[in-house]
C-alpha cells in the first residue's frame, strides 16, 4: 500500500498558540506542505514577522530569522542577495507589511528582489489586542475605532497588493481567501506558485491571504468565514492581480 498523505516534515508536531478559528495555523501548514513538495526544506530561510506569527519558528522545521516590525523584506533582501541559492520567504501580517513596513515592502518589490511573500490580511492587529489595521474595513469596529472605521478620520482600507502590482519589477501577485476548503486549496496553489517563481528566478512574488480572526472580529469561526466571503472579499476581491 502507498502512503499518500502524512504530516509535513517541515511542520513541527506542536499545538500552536493561535486562537480557535485563526487562519495562521492553516497557512503555516500549507507552507510546510509546499516546502516538502518542492523538496526545498534544506534551502529555505524564512523571515518571521512581528505580530501573531512572531514565533512561527517554533512551528516550522527549517531555518528562520526574526525581523523587527515591518523590516522583514529588508532582512530578506540581505539574506537572499548574500545567499542567492537559498529560498527566502517572508511571512507578514497587514500591520507589518502595509503599515510600519510599507517602505521596505514597496522598495524590495521595486528592486525586484527574487523573494516570496506570504501576506496575511485579517484586517486587524491581532497580537496587540485588535486595533485598526491599514486594511480594516470601513465601519469595522476595532479597539482603536470603537465606533467603526471612519474614512474621514482614518482613510480607506489600503490595497497594498494593487499598489505593488503597478511596479514593473513585480512578477506575481494573487489574492486568495481562507473562506472555504476550496479557498484553502486555491491558497495553497497560489503560494506554491510564488515559491516556484523564486526557484525559477522569476522574481518578486506575493500572495495576499484573506484570513479569519474570529477573536478580534468578535465572531464565531463559521461567521468569520462567511464574513470573508460576503464582506471582506468585496473590498478585497480575490484572484490574480498581476
Amino acid at each position: 500500500m502507498k502512503k499518500i498523505f502524512s504530516y509535513p516534515t517541515s511542520l513541527n508536531k506542536l499545538t500552536t498558540h493561535y486562537c480557535a478559528g485563526c487562519g495562521h495555523g492553516i497557512v503555516h501548514r500549507l507552507i510546510s506542505e509546499i516546502v516538502d513538495e518542492l523538496n526545498i526544506r534544506e534551502k529555505v530561510i524564512a523571515i518571521a514577522p512581528v505580530g501573531c506569527a512572531v514565533i512561527a519558528y517554533n512551528y516550522w522545521n527549517f531555518d528562520v530569522c526574526e525581523a523587527a516590525h515591518g523590516r522583514a523584506l529588508a532582512v530578506a533582501t540581505g539574506i537572499k542577495r548574500y545567499r542567492p541559492d537559498n529560498i527566502v520567504f517572508t511571512y507578514q501580517g497587514d500591520g507589518d507589511l502595509a503599515a510600519i513596513g510599507t517602505s521596505e515592502t514597496i522598495h524590495a518589490a521595486n528592486r525586484g528582489e527574487n523573494l516570496t511573500v506570504v501576506f496575511i490580511n485579517n484586517a486587524v492587529y491581532g497580537m496587540t489586542g485588535g486595533q485598526m489595521a491599514p486594511t480594516t474595513l470601513l465601519g469595522q469596529k476595532t479597539a482603536t475605532t470603537p465606533a467603526g472605521r471612519d474614512a474621514s478620520l482614518t482613510g480607506y482600507p489600503l490595497k497594498i497588493s494593487e499598489l505593488l502590482a503597478q511596479l514593473t519589477a513585480v512578477k506575481y501577485i494573487e489574492r486568495v481567501a481562507l473562506d472555504s476548503p476550496q479557498g484553502v486549496l486555491k491558497t495553497k496553489s497560489a503560494i506554491k506558485q510564488a515559491f516556484r517563481n523564486q526557484v525559477e528566478n522569476i522574481g518578486f512574488s506575493l500572495v495576499e491571504v484573506l484570513s479569519p480572526c474570529p477573536t478580534y472580529w468578535q465572531m464565531s469561526a463559521k461567521q468569520s468565514l462567511d464574513w470573508i466571503r460576503d464582506v471582506m472579499s468585496r473590498e478585497f476581491p480575490v484572484g490574480r492581480i498581476k
Binding site: R71, V75, G78, I79, Y82
Partner: peptide
Amino acid sequence: NMVLGVSAAG
C-alpha cells in the same frame, strides 16, 4: 535590517 539579514546568513 539588510545588514541584519546578511549577518544572520553568516
